[in-house]
Amino acid sequence: MKNTHQFKLYLPGISAEKNVDCSIISADLRQDKTLVGLYKAESGKVVLKEESEYETSVFGSFSDLVNKFISDHNIKEFCRISAAVPGPVMGGKSAPQRLPWKLDAEDIKNATNADKVSLINDLEASAFGLGNVHDQDVDSIYESGNYIPGNVAILAPGAGLGEAGLFWDGDSLRPFATEGGHCEFSPRTADEVEFYQFLNKIYGIVSWESVLSTSGLFNIYRFIRDIKRQKQPDWLTEEIEAGNFTQAIINGAREKKDRICTMTIDTFMNFLAREANSLVLKLKATGGLILTGELPNLMEEFLNRKQFYKNFIVSDKMESVLKDIPIYLVKNDKSILNGAALYAAFSEE
């Protein structure tokens, strides 16, 4: 992959005097563990200087967590805090369902003595993280011979389903958040109608996040097991009871250990191609599709098989557009943390 220059971001403050040598505390907030880093703005990049990981639920607020990080690393000076949150941010406030507390930028500023606090959606932060990736962080799943610069789509299945976009303004890319993962899932085939009915009894409203996430992967599995009557092998029962389902089902499909493993992963990959297709068409993302997050990285070898691309380009009238969309896998596990820091450093003049 030699095309990271294609991800040129709109960063109007990259040369501003006030942003030179600025120190930033960046956080990637997650349900179980939160990653926090101290960054310094250097030569148009953000450089990670210190980092720590904390149990999210231990703290009474995000401010308490940040102050713990400041104390742990004996940080004397910093100018900004940037927090990537797994949910919508509106008016400097956010109340993500996966976190134990609400966030308010003004309250955090007062509690930490920061000059400025930014809250940013985690997938928007991941989009900004493209400004800090290196060639080795990006694998090409499909390269087009007819590349046309344009909008870019990001799809990230993990604990939830993150979706974001980057608007092409003719010169650079401008990241923006969406909540597309919460759009309703729609079945296409008779088997998928059965799957929808199975999920409808559990959730009522069936979103794409109920299909393309770690819990969604298990939903597919138990549909195949319970409705399609595929046998659950003893070794997989042991892995499920030990809390190792995701890695076990992927390994089982990779090693072709049992039919139920292969069926589960094949179904997940088909749905991933379907939703990728929809997101790209809605954003007219001729600049590319970026897959990232926990599950695509665990399933890289399945993405590189021709079936994913074949399912991705299926369309009533738009196959001629879809067939030329480049597809990339971003493997940097700190892209959200990096992106939140880059946003705080250079998004304003």
Rank of each mutant, 00 (worst) to 15 (best):
Met1Leu: 00
Lys2Trp: 05
Asn3Met: 04
Asn3Cys: 01
His5Val: 10
His5Arg: 12
Phe7Gly: 01
Lys8His: 14
Lys8Asp: 13
Pro12Met: 08
Ile14Lys: 11
Asn19Lys: 04
Cys22Arg: 09
Leu29His: 00
Asp32Leu: 13
Leu35Lys: 13
Val36Ala: 02
Gly37Phe: 08
Tyr39Arg: 03
Ser43Asn: 13
Lys45Ile: 01
Val46Ser: 04
Glu53Thr: 15
Tyr54Ala: 01
Gly60Tyr: 03
Ser63Lys: 09
Ser63Met: 07
Asp64Val: 04
Lys68Leu: 11
His73Asn: 14
Phe78Lys: 02
Phe78Leu: 02
Arg80His: 00
Ile81Gln: 08
Ala83Cys: 09
Val85Met: 10
Gly87Tyr: 10
Met90Pro: 00
Gly91Trp: 00
Ala105Tyr: 05
Leu119Ala: 11
Asp122Val: 09
Phe128Lys: 04
Gly131Ala: 04
Asn132Lys: 00
Asp135Asn: 12
Asp139Phe: 12
Tyr142Arg: 14
Asn146Trp: 04
Pro149Met: 03
Gly150His: 11
Pro157Ala: 04
Ala159Met: 13
Gly165Gln: 09
Leu166Asn: 04
Trp168Arg: 01
Asp169Tyr: 06
Asp169Gly: 09
Gly170Lys: 10
Gly170Tyr: 08
Arg174Ala: 08
Thr178Leu: 05
Cys183Leu: 15
Glu184Gln: 13
Glu184Phe: 13
Arg188Gln: 03
Glu194Thr: 10
Phe195Lys: 02
Asn200Lys: 11
Lys201Tyr: 06
Ile205Pro: 00
Ser207Ala: 12
Ser213Arg: 05
Leu217Trp: 01
Asn219Gly: 08
Arg222Pro: 02
Asp234Leu: 14
Thr237Asp: 13
Thr237Ala: 07
Glu238Thr: 13
Glu239Val: 00
Glu239Ile: 02
Thr246Gly: 01
Ile249Met: 05
Ile249Glu: 06
Ile250Gly: 03
Asn251Phe: 05
Gly252Cys: 15
Lys256His: 15
Cys261Ser: 13
Cys261Trp: 01
Cys261Asn: 12
Cys261Lys: 04
Met263Phe: 08
Ile265Lys: 07
Ile265Thr: 05
Asn270His: 12
Asn270Thr: 13
Ala276Ile: 02
Asn277Thr: 03
Ser278Asp: 12
Leu279Glu: 12
Lys282Glu: 08
Leu283Gly: 08
Lys284Glu: 09
Ala285Phe: 10
Gly288His: 10
Ile290Asp: 09
Gly293Asn: 07
Asn297Thr: 05
Leu298Tyr: 11
Leu298Arg: 15
Glu301Ala: 08
Glu301Leu: 07
Phe302Leu: 03
Asn304Met: 14
Tyr309Lys: 14
Met318Tyr: 12
Glu319Thr: 15
Ser320Tyr: 11
Ser320Leu: 11
Leu322Met: 06
Asp324Ser: 13
Ile327Arg: 09
Ile327Thr: 06
Ile327Lys: 09
Val330Trp: 00
Ile336Ser: 03
Gly339Met: 10
Leu342Gln: 03
Ala344Leu: 06
Phe346Ile: 08
